[in-house]
Computed example of a mutant assay.
Amino acid sequence: MKKYLGRTAAAALLVSFAGQVAAEEWNVSLWGAPRAFTAHVEKLAELVSEKTDGEFTLNISYGGLSNNRENLDGISIGAFEMAQFCAGYHRDKNPSITVLELPFLGVSSLEQEVELSMAVYNHPATVEDLGRWNAKLLMPSPLPQYNIVGVGDAPSTLADFEGLSVRATGGIGAAMEAVGAVPTSMSATEVRQAMDSGVVKAVSFAPHAHMSFGTIENGTWWTTNLNPGTVNCPVVVNTDAFESLSDAHREALMGSVDEALDHYIANYNGATMEAWGPALKERGIEEVTFADSEIEAFKSVAAAPAAAAWIEQNSAAGLPAQELYDLVTGMIAGDN
């Protein structure tokens, strides 16, 4: 664990008389394995190293530094300098950004997801919320709408979800509960074992995660158009570590975010989605497409009640919840 007390003074001593910036290494806590979900962090590390001639490096660890549900805690105590986490893993720790996980918001692209996320991340209430964890929000991990891979009889109507045990976090879990399913919140790394053992019969994921975490290896059906929402998984940095960076290193980091996100989106919309269809067909997975009337019925029982409950709960907790909700929905309406 790095100690930041007196770090500025220590860094000053390491700067050479020639004016060169001292070398800096950051530890980055991710989980799973390199995949579409982590492509922007990998690209960020590459860009930062290039721009600083190797003087600033991001050492990426996949599960070696922390449990994925504890990455925000690790950031708060300076156990590592950068991490990725998902808001739905611990909604009470980061309520401000869970507005982005409400069901049926109507987000239509990864580019729009980035725009919405950054607007929420930069809101003063969100900055203060994450500041409780000594965390600075750096960039999102934009994900498409989630759909469900399951085993057993494929559903054909909303009524068929009654009693179905499904891994679903955040707003997606609330949406599934609204149609009678039994949502279970668990991290991505726990899903395959839970599915193999029968703890859950279905899993809500974005396409890359269905492939990365093996749900399609024993799944028999997949919903093509349920699209209840997505999750928000930011990349954050420890505030003390960020503030201790030299101007050159801070500029290299912040100046690489947009390019890293562009790389992520191009990779997701390209290679990841190109692999998704063939992966389903190779395994003979049945594609379930619901009638428009079923989707509209799903929205009517899930969207407005979830939003109202979110606003009420978080307003009572002191957040400007209505303001955050209006920010997101207003931006979406303006884009349509």
Rank of each mutant, 00 (worst) to 15 (best):
Q145R: 12
T272F: 03
G277K: 15
R283T: 01
L65W: 10
N122E: 15
K43A: 01
E296W: 03
D53W: 12
L72M: 04
A12K: 09
A159T: 08
D53P: 04
S141D: 07
G54F: 11
L72C: 04
A306F: 07
A45M: 05
S76N: 06
E46M: 14
V237C: 08
Y89M: 14
A304E: 09
F161I: 10
L110C: 00
A321F: 10
V328K: 01
K2Q: 14
V41I: 15
R91V: 08
G6W: 09
S293Q: 09
V21I: 01
L65R: 06
C233S: 12
D92Q: 11
L5R: 03
L65V: 15
E312T: 14
I148K: 06
T230G: 00
E113C: 09
N67W: 00
A252H: 08
P155M: 08
T52P: 07
N314H: 13
D153R: 12
A154W: 00
T157N: 07
R35V: 11
K201N: 12
V114E: 08
E128C: 10
A18Y: 11
L116Y: 04
E282P: 01
E113R: 14
D258L: 02
N227E: 10
E128I: 11
H249L: 07
W31I: 07
M1C: 07
L47Y: 05
A135L: 01
M211A: 06
N269F: 02
V328Q: 06
P320A: 12
L116E: 09
L13K: 13
G318V: 04
W133S: 08
I75S: 05
N227S: 11
A279E: 15
L158G: 09
L226C: 10
S256H: 03
A297N: 06
S165E: 08
V151N: 02
G32T: 02
V120C: 03
G106W: 05
I285F: 00
D73R: 14
G170P: 03
Y4L: 13
D160A: 11
G284K: 10
G180W: 06
D92H: 11
E46Y: 03
G6T: 07
A241L: 02
S293N: 09
A248V: 10
E111P: 04
Y264P: 00
T329D: 02
S197N: 09
Y62I: 05
M211N: 05
L319W: 02
T272D: 12
L138D: 13
E323C: 12
V99R: 02
E296P: 09
V107H: 04
I332G: 09
S66G: 02
L116N: 05
